[in-house]
Design a protein around this nucleic acid. Structure first.
Length: 281
DNA sequence: GACAATGTTACAGT
DNA sequence: CACTGTAACATTGT
């Protein structure tokens, strides 16, 4: 599901619903044997200590960093949730794939649903959350006030030989962009997804910067993208998928002013890219 | 049955 | 060592 606008939509929903609530109990049915998940609630041993730490704690604040949700608790601990491909958080709401539930003292609950079970929930010290291995190597937030086109150019140029789409999706370069928004941004600015960063002009970096902010902001306004299975904490779909120009528009006529092209699909570095056959160069 | 699916990361290869 | 591309994680929908 979730790239920056979807995670932001979820975080804003949580800020309206769970602040001040006290966690009374946590439940999960996850039982992984994958050693890479040793520090997540999917590991039963980790879960029992996690449960002890969060029980009877109050929700102080909720924030977003890249595609991660950070839930800060009254005991200076932070619950980090990464929804990966198919995860979502639901408030007082259930669906078929709920694998973790936080029960609050007012009898409401927060459910983590995750069809493919790729998601990650772990506990960190609030003070060092942003220096933890999960967040320390992530690039700047594209919607941060201090983010400028110059900064974006400087970040992207760290991968001169990389294909622009791949570099845009690299979380260490810039935070929060995935397959949907990289396709939409590049369609908007007319840059081919396979163009090498070193071949991109200054004016094009400026355009990429503007399109990035415009498209991400627009999607947040529409409540995120539910082309696949994203839903917000109330179980409702976002509407940005109704405004796609490239992503999963294969075979459609290009809707750029006066462009006679059509949208093609091609696998680039293992992910499907969608772009106009003519105006993206 | 075949194929594709929003993210991340370990690993193999150069 | 640094960088790059691929496979894997688990499951569903078309």
């Amino acid at each position: 599901m979730p790239e920056l606008p979807e995670v932001e939509t979820t975080v804003r929903g949580l800020q309206k619903t769970i602040l001040g609530l006290i966690i009374k109990d946590v439940w999960t049915d996850l039982k992984t044997k994958d050693s890479r998940k040793h520090d997540t609630v999917a590991n039963p041993k980790y879960f029992s200590s996690f449960k002890k730490e969060v029980t009877n704690k109050k929700i102080k604040s909720v924030e977003r960093r890249a595609k991660n949700i950070l839930i800060n608790l009254s005991n200076s601990k932070t619950i980090l949730v990464h929804m990966k491909m198919t995860g979502h958080l639901l408030f007082n709401n259930k669906d078929k794939f709920v694998h973790v539930v936080f029960n609050f003292s007012n009898r409401k609950y927060l459910a983590f649903s995750d069809m493919r079970k790729f998601g990650k929930i772990t506990l960190l010290n609030t003070k060092t959350t942003h220096d933890s291995k999960h967040l320390k190597d992530i690039g700047p937030e594209p919607l941060d006030k201090t983010f400028t086109y110059k900064k974006l150019e400087e970040r992207l140029r760290k991968k001169p030989n990389g294909k622009i789409k791949t570099v845009l999706m690299n979380q260490a370069i810039v935070a929060g962009i995935g397959n949907i928004y990289s396709d939409e941004i590049l369609w908007q600015v007319g840059v081919h997804p396979e163009r090498r960063v070193s071949k991109i002009k200054k004016t094009e970096f400026q355009k990429i910067f503007k399109a990035m902010q415009k498209i991400l902001t627009k999607s947040i306004k529409f409540g995120g993208d539910s082309m696949s299975d994203y839903i917000n904490i109330y179980g409702k779909k976002g509407k940005f998928q109704l405004h796609h120009q490239a992503y999963r528009q294969t075979g459609e006529k290009c809707r750029k002013n006066g462009c006679k092209g059509f949208i093609k699909r091609k696998i680039i570095n293992g992910r499907s890219a969608h772009f106009c056959s003519i105006h993206q160069k």
